[in-house]
C-alpha cells in the first residue's frame, strides 16, 4: 500500500543540473543549500515522526482506555 507513490516518482524528470529559474530576490546560494542538505531532512524526520507517533499513541490510549472500557456497541 504505497498509494502509487513510487510510480509517480519514477515518472519524474530527474535531471536537475540547471539552476532554479531566475529569481533575483532569492538570496540563497547553491553552496549554502548544498551544505544544509547534508543534514536536512533529519530534523523533519524527527519532528514529524515524533508528532505522528504521539498522535497514534494518544489515539490508541483513547481507543482502549475510554472507548473499549465503556462497553460494547453495535
Amino acid at each position: 500500500m504505497n498509494f502509487g507513490l513510487g510510480e509517480f516518482m519514477s515518472n519524474f524528470d530527474r535531471s536537475s543540473d540547471s539552476p532554479p529559474p531566475g529569481d533575483t530576490l532569492d538570496p540563497i546560494t547553491d553552496a549554502a543549500l548544498e551544505d544544509v542538505l547534508k543534514t536536512v531532512p533529519q530534523g523533519a524526520f524527527a519532528l514529524a515522526g515524533a508528532a505522528m507517533g504521539l498522535l497514534v499513541l494518544a489515539w490508541l490510549a483513547v481507543y482502549v482506555f475510554i472507548f473499549l472500557a465503556r462497553g460494547p456497541i453495535s
Binding site: 504505497n2 530527474r14 536537475s16 542538505l37 543534514t39 531532512p41 524526520f45
Partner: peptide, 16 residues
Amino acid sequence: PITNEQELQKTEFRWA
C-alpha cells in the same frame, strides 16, 4: 547527504 533530486525523493518515499 542529498545531492540530487532522486536522493531527495528517496527520503520522501521513506517517510511515506
